[in-house]
């Protein structure tokens, strides 16, 4: 019986071609990543040379402090993107995270001003943040609503509740914890900066060191494969939304400490959070969102604002440069993907 179907005869030429192709692809990807990182580095180098005091320890710690809130929020967003997949319209996204932080801050500051202790107030803020996260999880996982839409609706609920609670006013707050966060320091590094460092260490360990984190990537990268491997996809996705709510609550404590109050308008942070989480992918070898990459892009955004400030450039440029960078990074990425897309 003769063979009736042509399978390729796998000659040596085919082998080398296949590996050659993937090597070429890896090279292109590398060039893209290095190019984007080089652009970041060039901007930093410019600041180092021309911005007075940019590299001073004081200034750098200041930047880390300023980045703490954005960083913690961006971790929440990153976890949602990891677990839900990075397809921006269908995949994981938490548009409610900044509004959630605003709500938590309002709850925290209001309870403090009513005379509740730090412990109770922090606990309440965390409970509220996680409850909002759970609501997102219910909508996305339980009811199957597109994350973009579900979290959009929850954004409105959270923002409205914040406004109702504070009547759109500044709620001043002071407590031992807040005092410590503002003025405490250890090894010459302020408590606020430590907060970011410790939180980063914990979240990087969980997402990148444990089997749980590994499985989370599988759930987001290929849900079918995760299911076939016996993982409960709904559980992991739900977890990311609740974690995102938790991050919002932690960030709320930090923001109240920085401003000694809860203030309206926290929703404006959303775009920066999104930008940080998305930009972070260029720092990853696999072009996936990572906590380390997110931290780097948060610091980068912080340094960008700081450098402009030191150079007396209007801070109004920051948004624009951030936007242009997103476009640059994504355009180069899609260019590299396009050249490999012939497969």
């Amino acid at each position: 019986m003769s063979a009736t179907t042509l399978h390729t005869e796998a000659g040596a030429s085919d082998e080398t071609r296949a590996t050659g192709k993937s090597a070429g692809r890896r090279f292109a990807t590398l060039v893209v990543r290095l190019g984007a990182i080089a652009a970041f580095a060039a901007i930093m180098a410019y600041f180092v040379v021309f911005a007075p005091g940019f590299t001073s320890t004081f200034n750098l710690i200041n930047v880390v402090e300023q980045s703490a809130i954005l960083g913690v929020l961006a971790y929440g967003m990153t976890s949602v993107i990891i677990g839900g997949g990075s397809d921006v319209t269908e995949g994981g996204i938490d548009l409610s995270i900044a509004a959630n932080m605003g709500l938590c801050a309002a709850v925290y500051a209001t309870l403090l001003s009513m005379g509740c202790g730090d412990f109770l107030s922090v606990l309440a803020a965390i409970a509220v943040g996680m409850a909002v996260g759970a609501l997102n999880a219910l909508a996305v996982v339980g009811l199957g609503i597109l994350p973009l839409l579900a979290t959009l609706a929850v954004l409105n609920v959270a923002a409205g509740m914040e406004l109702t609670l504070t009547q759109n006013t500044v709620v001043g707050a002071s407590s031992p914890l807040l005092a410590f966060l503002v003025s405490g320091s250890f090894l010459g590094i302020s408590a606020l900066a430590w907060a970011l460092i410790v939180f980063s260490a914990i979240i990087i360990a969980i997402i990148h060191g444990t089997a749980f984190g590994l499985r989370l990537y599988a759930v987001g990268g290929h849900p079918e494969a995760a299911r076939a491997a016996g993982l409960s996809v709904p559980f992991y996705v739900s977890f990311t939304y609740v974690l995102s709510g938790f991050c919002a609550a932690v960030a709320s404590v930090l923001t109240v400490s920085r401003l000694s109050a809860s203030t309206p308008g926290s929703g404006e942070l959303l775009l920066s959070v999104l930008a940080a989480a998305l930009l972070g992918t260029v720092f990853s070898r696999r072009f996936v969102p990572t906590m380390g990459g997110t931290l780097l892009s948060v610091l980068f955004i912080g340094l960008l604002a700081n450098g402009f400030q030191l150079l007396n450039v209007s801070s109004y440029w920051v948004n624009g440069v951030q936007g242009a960078l997103i476009l640059l990074v994504v355009a180069i990425t899609s260019f590299a993907r396009g050249s490999e897309g012939s497969r």
Binding site: G323, A324, L327, A331
Partner: peptide, 26 residues
Amino acid sequence: LITRLNISPFLATLGVLFIGQSTQQL
């Protein structure tokens, strides 16, 4: 951005949103 540079609509318009806000502020 979307048809020539092959950027996904979400990211392309997000970038334009940032740039547009800066432009207005400036």
